[in-house]
């Protein structure tokens, strides 16, 4: 039997029954921008960056199952324009100061902003007040950079079995919390060995006493733009990347 395929920007992409558009695209080395998606975890479709047009309808490619003969638009000026707007909103909602950030060059948000040619924040900055949590002996939490992707939430709950992280609040008040009455990471059972310690796509969860070990300019996305790193993105696994 012929393997089912769909067309991604005109390119035939084969897929297995039940695979999402994102999964199949990743396997075929085709890049669909994304932030909250990670092949290791259950997709949740919240960042909306991976929105594509499938048979004329806007859908999240990380949650939409591929169908035979489907025509999917991905890398189009219109979709990239919308993605750029989403990125701009993410940038102004938090406090993202790339030049001073330890994650600069390793940050997916920053890498996607370059990839999608975001030249300015466009919107007014919110400058929210989000105190850092430096209570834990090994890990610093800098909430200023949180984009609410819930990767740490999913990793801690589904892999580590700890549920150290959760979201609270709603709308613009939505924020990341930790599993302690004090609200401090030090009072949870979080450990640097947790999977959750190594999934943050931005610079919230940082290892203490290890700064700028690789110089800026030689980092992940300095070497090659994120759009050309599909193989690595698809291969992200449960290995603890300390």
């Amino acid at each position: 039997m012929k393997q089912p395929t769909f067309l991604l920007d005109g390119m035939p992409v084969p897929f297995e029954e039940g695979q999402t558009i994102m999964d199949a695209a990743m396997a075929a080395d085709a890049f669909i921008p994304h932030l909250c998606h990670h092949p290791e975890f259950k997709p949740q479709g919240s960042c909306k960056l991976c929105t594509v047009k499938a048979n004329g309808r806007h859908v999240s490619s990380c949650t939409m199952q591929a169908r035979d003969g489907m025509e999917v638009e991905n890398n189009t000026p219109d979709l990239n324009d919308k993605r750029r707007t989403l990125l701009q909103m993410l940038f102004v909602e938090g406090n993202h100061f790339c030049p001073s950030c330890e994650k600069s060059g390793n940050c997916m948000l920053q890498a996607l902003a370059y990839e999608l040619e975001m030249l300015s924040p466009h919107f007014d900055q919110f400058y929210p007040d989000r105190p850092v949590d430096a209570s834990h002996p090994d890990v610093l939490l800098d909430f200023n950079r949180c984009i609410l992707c819930e990767l740490c939430v999913r990793a801690s709950r589904d892999v580590d079995g700890k549920s150290v992280f959760a979201l609270s609040g709603r709308g613009i008040g939505k924020h990341l919390i930790v599993n302690a009455e004090s609200g401090r990471l030090a009072d949870t059972d979080f450990s640097l060995l947790d999977r959750a310690a190594h999934v943050c796509p931005v610079g919230v969860i940082l290892e203490k006493r290890k700064g700028f070990a690789v110089p800026i300019g030689q980092r992940l996305y300095d070497e090659k733009p994120i759009g050309q790193q599909m193989e690595r993105l698809a291969a992200r696994t449960a290995k603890v990347e300390v």
């Binding site: 150290v164 959760a166 709603r170 008040g173």
Partner: peptide, 27 residues
């Protein structure tokens, strides 16, 4: 109060963060 959330979480056998997450959601 925070102590009540902690007590409810342990009585229900769910992570405290989940209880706080739910409590923080509803206005």
């Amino acid at each position: 109060p925070p102590v009540a959330l902690t007590h409810i979480a342990s009585s229900l056998g769910v992570p405290r963060a989940r209880v706080e997450g739910v409590a923080g959601f509803y206005s």
